[in-house]
Design a protein around this nucleic acid. Structure first.
Lengths: 166, 166
DNA sequence: CAAAACTTTCAATTTTTACTGAAAGTTTTA
DNA sequence: TAAAACTTTCAGTAAAAATTGAAAGTTTTG
């Protein structure tokens, strides 16, 4: 396979994965593109490669910066901004995990905690509380575990993987 | 808090979580509703509670059945179908994990594997391969680990959580 | 077997989400 | 300091996804 073809395939596939998981396709594609570019890219280059408008490129680049997985670079002698993805997959996973947990999982854990406080003592209420408690325990354990994994370093991760997999 | 209010809050919040993670809101809400209903519900009851059309209710119920986390029940003397969510959170997590992995993660791992086969030996190609390899290793390890977690039983899970957390 | 009870399908519509492009804003340079 | 180079914003538009509702399909019952 040719390098260009491979890049294209990867960028496309990453976009599909992203949109399946609630990340907009373009944002995922820009991220993929920057991940496999040997050098930082300008807005123009991103626009050109993905055939998207300036506004779209700009907003999604900013989005990626907000996630903390892309940074602006300034080239001396150049007036444009250049963008570069963090190539440390660990760092990327860490940031995404922390952000998504904070934005999406933690609020749900909070709600689960709240709705547990049903005063009623009927059979139905008891069953409800039980279901919610299990859900809460599961959710927060999993959330904690994922964070733990991702916070630790690469070496620890693989060690743990190996330990747990056998 | 009153039971009804608590249920409503939970159903709503589960819908939000779902749509953030690429699951349509209604499907997530129906699932939540069935999870906290003491008895199986008919299509009418689901329609009524969530204020949705028959077609919508039907399609999303079928969707949930396809995921393997909701089952049809037949009540003797009744002609309608009734729907019931699997209340074993473990089983639910297991099925969702397996399905999403199969539908969404595995295809990406396959692509990553494919695009590694770049013949070129330029510096750029080398860097590309390195990035993809790291991504692939990370993705498949994480995927494998999550599956492993979810395949094992509740007891093993908590034991592992405790072991890893300290 | 035909009417009733119920379920499924799908074209049309609505809602939501993403994108465009031009205008406004900002920074740099001469 | 004004024009050029570049970035950001956002109202309007387009595209995608979800939903409706009515018609077609299926199963049950008398």
């Amino acid at each position: 396979m040719k390098l260009d073809e491979a890049k294209q395939k990867f960028v496309h596939s990453w976009g599909v994965l992203g949109s399946n998981w609630g990340i907009n396709k373009t944002m995922a594609q820009i991220h993929a593109l920057l991940l496999v570019s040997e050098k930082p890219l300008s807005t123009e280059e991103v626009m050109e490669y993905l055939q998207i408008s300036r506004g779209n490129a700009n907003m999604n680049l900013r989005g990626l910066i907000d996630w903390g997985i892309v940074t602006k670079e300034i080239k001396i002698g150049e007036r444009k901004d250049f963008f570069k993805a963090d190539k440390d997959i660990w760092e990327v996973a860490r940031r995404i995990t922390e952000e998504r947990s904070k934005r999406e999982v933690e609020p749900v854990i909070k709600i689960l905690n709240e709705v547990k406080n049903v005063e009623e003592e009927s059979e139905e209420a008891k069953e409800f509380k039980e279901t919610i408690e299990k859900l809460e325990s599961f959710t927060s354990n999993l959330d904690g575990l994922v964070k733990k994994f991702v916070k630790s370093d690469e070496h620890w991760f693989y060690k743990t993987v190996i330990k747990l997999m056998k």
